[in-house]
């Protein structure tokens, strides 16, 4: 076991196809697309269910049901059905994003202080204004934590794309394994973990930026 692969400058050549920078880029590409697709599907659904209370059963159980779906199996099923390519990978990864986003959007909407929502309506906000100016900002902390856990999971799981012939950091794991090059496997594991932690930190910053300080448990302010 050694870090020679990771620290070999040749593997960091940004122009090299199969080099670490390009693998990171394609990996992040899968992650971003899967997060986008999954969120576009799950966020409105979760908000709607949380807002109306209709379909709560679905939202509550989506979390566990989603976790129980083996991503590798789904991916291979999709490849067998649709052939090799980006689509089956994106489907499998998006399915991974849906449960945490759906559940947290639902939980965020349910956790709202109904007195505040009542005040918003009573002051003359229209339903859309109540949603965008009061409910969403207040649900944001819960929502963001769901999105962050989805992002963590997708970054780690996107490695399986390599198992069906695609790119991404999984290449280092699969190819390294195939030729017993553990230094390459180690490099892949480290880069993925760093990427996951880095993305989470980035999202934590985004969260701090978009969530009102008034929603912190002990808000700091000019006092």
């Amino acid at each position: 076991m050694n870090l020679s692969y990771l620290f070999d400058a040749a593997h960091w050549d940004p122009t090299l196809s199969g080099g670490i920078p390009q693998l990171i880029l394609s990996h992040l590409g899968y992650v971003a697309l899967a997060l986008l697709i999954g969120t576009v599907i799950a966020l409105p659904a979760g908000l709607y269910i949380g807002h109306t209370g209709r379909g709560s059963f679905l939202a509550i159980n989506a979390g566990n049901a989603g976790r129980s779906l083996p991503t590798l199996g789904l991916l291979m099923l999709m490849v067998t059905l649709l052939g090799l390519g980006l689509t089956p990978v994106l489907i499998a990864l998006s399915v991974l994003v849906i449960p945490p986003v759906l559940t947290s959007a639902y939980a965020g909407m349910r956790s709202l202080d109904q007195r505040v929502v009542d005040a918003a309506r009573g002051m003359g906000m229209r339903p859309w204004q109540v949603l965008t100016r009061v409910e969403l900002p207040m649900a944001l902390p819960v929502l963001m934590s769901g999105f962050r856990s989805a992002a963590l999971q997708v970054v780690a799981t996107a490695t399986v794309a390599a198992a069906v012939g695609l790119s991404g950091l999984g290449r280092l794991l699969i190819d390294g394994l195939a030729v017993n090059d553990y230094s390459r496997v180690l490099a892949g594991a480290i880069v993925v973990a760093v990427l996951a932690v880095g993305l989470d930190l980035l999202l934590a910053l985004v969260q701090r930026w978009v969530v009102s300080p008034g929603l912190n448990p002990s808000p700091k302010g000019p006092s």
């Binding site: 202080d113 007195r115 505040v116 009542d118 005040a119 918003a120 309506r121 009573g122 002051m123 003359g124 906000m125 229209r126 009061v134 900002p137 207040m138 969530v211 009102s212 008034g214 929603l215």
Partner: peptide, 22 residues
């Protein structure tokens, strides 16, 4: 509905202030 309410001041128990706004 909304215009009517904007013309009527509304105060509730616990104030119902928006926690995310100053």
């Amino acid at each position: 509905e909304a215009l009517l309410r904007r013309g009527i001041g509304y105060v509730i128990q616990h104030a119902g202030l928006f926690p995310h706004r100053t």
